[in-house]
Design a protein around this nucleic acid. Structure first.
Length: 468
RNA sequence: GGUGGGUUGGCCGAGAGGCGAGGCAACGGACUGCAAAUCCGUCUACACGGGUUCAAAUCCCGUACCCACCUCCA
């Protein structure tokens, strides 16, 4: 069984053949750190985290590079609005991003380069392009350097577009461009409006990197001129990825063998999305569900499928996940030894272009099977099911026992022991009432606890409470 | 105008020529003092109109609707 991936460049799902046996080099476009991350932003991170974990689980050594765009027009504009240094804004938003990603158990990348730390590599690439006749310094004295789209016949190959068909940026000021579709590799410093800290010296005068060049330069530096997989959101296919590929190949670098693009999370109608705007920020979604539940919600849809975000669907997903968790809870008290193993159906699902929905269905199948076996107490089959469920959850980054989920658990633990102390007294009374067959009294106590938001379940091991 | 993706049961969400993904909800049954949880069962869906085929949700043609992208400065 081989992993098959859908390559958006060829629109084919084909076998993954790494350049180097046993190794996979992945470059993923991270975020421009200009504002707080919302659920749409982090979906991409979860999707590629799953890819990475699956490659690692199947024996690959993975070099996973995810960049941070820490300088660009929007960062400069926003920082000016807020009256803070652009680098302060970028750093603050980067911290928010790290928090959000940690909250949904996205592994830190092998390395996380930023554009501002790679100006020499960027300038080196620009020089190569100028030398080969694919880039030119603007003749209007702006200090800009542009990629010459007309000089590269393959331009448009990634998104199958012809240069002639592309809508020229109608209201754009062509300034020093030879063709309106040429894009900036280097942006000359605008003294009047831009801070000096946002300019670096270059042969073309002070300035800063264009939007696309950083990824080409950094992918080249950390993964080499040719690497295996390049990922990002669908919205980045054009112009960002098209331009990355053009400028890399025009400089003589073969670039990525596979292109993977994740679909977007959208919200319902426009009016709603406006009102949902803030509530879709990761921290506020996490007030409603736990990080592991949000991750489960994202993983239970295929990465190439559009997800229409709704809190109702999120709540349903959370319930579905708790079913899995409940099984682990109950089984862990019964199961002695177990070993991790992945069912064939799960492996097949994952190998088929990361079919996480089918993979999740396999988890539920094992859970149902496990619940059935649980009735008869400990058994080898039960241990096996338990090990399967744990192993599958691990691959998807959804193992509740993973210490990554332990963040902030100290407060919870404290609170839990307080509630436990209060509830145990009442439960003892209820147990006594039940033994005396005083059902009215027993139910009254259960209702009283329930009104406080605590559900009671009677299990063979005695009453068990959960916060509903 | 160009490029790509989509429309699946009450809801979410897979599948991509035959063999009923899975979850949530609902209903019936088992279990329970009653519940809860769990298990068993029920709900046979693929936007519309044609076509190909022994067989179409899946392939082909057409129609409708929806979404994304089409370049710094925005």
């Amino acid at each position: 069984m081989t992993l098959r991936l859908h390559d958006t460049a060829t629109r084919e799902t084909r076998d993954f053949v790494p350049l180097q046996q046993g190794r996979a080099g992945i470059y993923v476009c991270g975020l421009t750190v200009q504002s707080e991350p919302h659920v749409g932003h982090v979906r991409s991170a979860v999707n590629f985290d799953v890819l990475r974990r699956w490659l690692a689980a199947t024996g690959y050594t993975v070099d996973f590079i995810r960049n941070v765009t820490d300088i660009d027009d929007k960062i400069l504009a926003r920082s000016a609005e807020q009256g803070v240094h652009w680098y302060a804004l970028a750093a603050a938003m980067k911290r928010e991003l790290d928090k959000a990603l940690a909250a949904i158990n996205v592994l830190p990348p092998t390395y996380e380069p930023g554009a501002t730390g790679h100006v020499p590599e960027i300038l080196e690439l620009i020089e190569q392009l100028v030398a080969r006749g694919h880039a030119y310094a603007a003749e209007d004295g702006s200090g800009d350097v542009y990629f010459d789209v007309r000089s590269w016949p393959a331009y448009g190959e990634l998104t199958r577009q012809k240069v002639e068909d592309m809508e020229p940026a109608g209201d754009a000021d062509p300034r020093g461009k030879r063709d309106p579709r040429d894009f900036a590799l280097w942006k000359g410093w605008k003294q009047e409006t831009e801070p000096q800290t946002a300019a670096w010296p270059s042969p073309y005068g002070p300035g800063r990197p264009g939007w696309h060049i950083e990824c080409s330069a950094m992918a080249g530096k950390y993964l080499g001129p040719a690497f295996d997989i390049h990922g990002g959101g669908v919205d980045l296919r054009f112009p960002h990825h098209e331009n990355e590929q053009a400028q890399s190949r025009a400089a003589g670098r073969p670039f990525s063998s596979y292109w993977l693009h994740n679909a977007w999370i959208t919200t319902a109608g426009e009016k709603m999305s406006k009102s949902l705007g803030n509530s879709l920020l990761v921290p506020s979604v996490l007030e409603r569900v736990r990080g592991i539940e949000l991750r489960y919600y994202m993983v239970s849809a295929h990465y190439r499928s559009h997800v229409e975000f709704s809190f109702e669907a999120l709540d349903e997903a959370a319930k579905g996940f708790r079913r899995i968790e409940d099984f682990l809870d109950r089984a862990s008290g019964v199961v002695g030894g177990w070993f991790a193993s992945l069912p064939d159906a799960f492996v097949q699902a994952m190998d088929d272009d990361l079919g996480t929905p089918a993979a999740v269905a396999v988890i539920h199948d094992s859970v149902r099977e496990g619940n059935r076996l649980l009735v008869d107490g400990a058994s080898d089959e039960l241990s096996q099911k338990f090990g399967e469920v744990i192993a599958m959850l691990d691959v998807l980054g959804l193992n509740p026992a993973d210490e990554a989920w332990a963040n902030g658990a100290d407060d919870d633990d404290k609170l839990t022991s307080v509630i436990d102390a209060l509830v145990q007294g009442l439960l003892a009374e209820r147990t006594a009432a039940r033994e005396a067959k005083d059902w009215a009294r027993a139910d009254a106590i259960r209702d009283q606890i329930k009104n406080a938001g605590v559900e009671v379940e009677d299990t063979p091991a005695g009453p068990k409470w959960t916060v509903s």
